[in-house]
Lab assay of single mutants.
Amino acid sequence: AIERGSKVKILRKESYWYGDVGTVASIDKSGIIYPVIVRFNKVNYNGFSGSAGGLNTNNFAEHELEVV
């Protein structure tokens, strides 16, 4: 089962992080479509409006993740 702290591989082909491994930061139990927040070591794009980097978290559905 996917739980907080799990290392997961991203299976969503259109994702910037496809094939990468991230760490589960949290799981939303409220029934939303993409409840699993995954944190990565790298950012997906340069930040804007003065922020240092881009996003390094993204929401995924459990079926888009594979525990490694």
Rank of each mutant, 00 (worst) to 15 (best):
Y34R: 11
S51W: 04
N58V: 10
S15G: 02
K7Y: 11
I2P: 06
K13F: 13
G50H: 10
F60R: 00
E14Q: 06
G53S: 11
G47R: 01
N56I: 11
K29C: 14
A61N: 05
E3L: 08
G47A: 04
I32P: 09
K29Q: 09
N56L: 08
S51V: 12
S30R: 08
G47L: 02
G47Y: 05
F40Q: 03
I33M: 11
L11W: 03
A1L: 12
E64Q: 01
K13E: 10
F60C: 04
V21H: 05
D20T: 12
Y45T: 15
A25I: 15
G53E: 14
G31F: 11
A1M: 12
V43T: 11
S49L: 13
G54N: 06
F60D: 02
K7P: 06
I27C: 07
Y34M: 11
D20M: 09
K29A: 10
G5K: 02
G5V: 02
V38N: 00
Y34A: 09
G22L: 06
T57C: 15
T57D: 07
A1Y: 08
A25E: 14
G54Q: 07
V68G: 01
V8F: 00
L11I: 06
V38L: 00
V67M: 09
R4Y: 10
I10K: 01
E66K: 09
S6G: 04
N59C: 15
I2C: 14
L11V: 06
R39E: 13
Y18C: 09
S30N: 11
Y34H: 12
G31S: 12
Y45Q: 15
I32V: 13
I33L: 13
K42Q: 08
R12M: 06
V8P: 01
V43N: 13
N59K: 07
S30Y: 05
L65H: 01
I27A: 01
K7R: 09
G54C: 15
S15V: 03
E64L: 03
V24E: 01
G22A: 04
P35R: 09
G47I: 04
F40V: 05
T23R: 04
D28Q: 07
G22K: 01
I32C: 14
W17F: 06
K7M: 13
L55W: 09
A52M: 10
L65M: 03
R12D: 05
D28H: 04
F48R: 04
S6L: 10
N58R: 06
V67A: 06
N41D: 13
A1D: 09
S6P: 03
F40Y: 02
G50R: 02
Y18Q: 00
E62I: 12
K9F: 01
V24Y: 00
F60V: 01
R39D: 09
L55A: 11
A52F: 12
S15N: 04
D28I: 10
G53W: 02
V36R: 00
Y16R: 03
D20W: 09
K9D: 03
R4F: 10
I32T: 13
D20Y: 11
F48S: 15
L65K: 01
G5E: 03
E62A: 11
H63P: 04
L11Q: 05
T57H: 10
L11H: 05
L65Q: 01
G53H: 10
V24R: 00
G50W: 03
E14Y: 04
V21N: 01
Y16L: 05
F60E: 00
A61G: 09
V43H: 12
V36Q: 00
S30Q: 07
G22Q: 02
R39A: 09
L65E: 00
E62K: 08
Y16M: 06
V38G: 00
V68L: 10
K29N: 12
Y45F: 13
